[in-house]
Amino acid sequence: MGKMVEIRWHGRGGQGAVTAAKLLAEAALGQNKYFQAFPEYGPERMGAPIQAFTRISPEPIEIHSNVTNPEIAIVLDPTLVGSIDVTEGLPNDGIVLVNSSEPPQEIKKKLNNQKVKVYSVNATQIALETIGKPIPNTTMLGALIKVTNLMKIDDAVEHVRSSFGKKFNQSVIDGNVKAVERAYDEVSG
């Protein structure tokens, strides 16, 4: 991708939306790209809807405004679809990627802007089966890479290995890697 990509993450406090946004930005570092990752600033409350943002660009990023027109919205919690407008500011050819057991066509019916491209992946289920916890954030990274081609899946996997390697034991690392790979394969749109 030649130009800057802007991504908005929707989640609930405690689901790891901020961590996911940061993880993606750090993975971009391995691609020698420039990036910004920042949460919607405010009191972070467990369970409350929250947003985080990632910008990725081949060139240094100088803008410090909010992300208001992202190309991609990622929804970590399926119950947010319909309760908040996850398509707000998205262009008609924008992408909405949802962690959900529902197929994309069903999700699209609940969106304000139904022209956007919708993808879904059951990241919570994948996370339960691979990591053993219903935390969908790293899993969604695999799906995101599939639908956007932001980077090669192998590079993302390598980044997950190195960044988790500092803090976690081998089974946690392997689980996360497996989650990323499965989401990459299983995302549908």
């Binding site: 930005a25 790209k33 420039y34 990036f35 910004q36 990752a37 920042f38 600033y41 990023i61 410090h64």
Partner: peptide
């Protein structure tokens, strides 16, 4: 430096 905008944003 600017609070949150710089302090909390991860950049390269």
């Amino acid at each position: 430096y600017d609070g949150f905008i710089i302090s909390h944003a991860i950049t390269r």
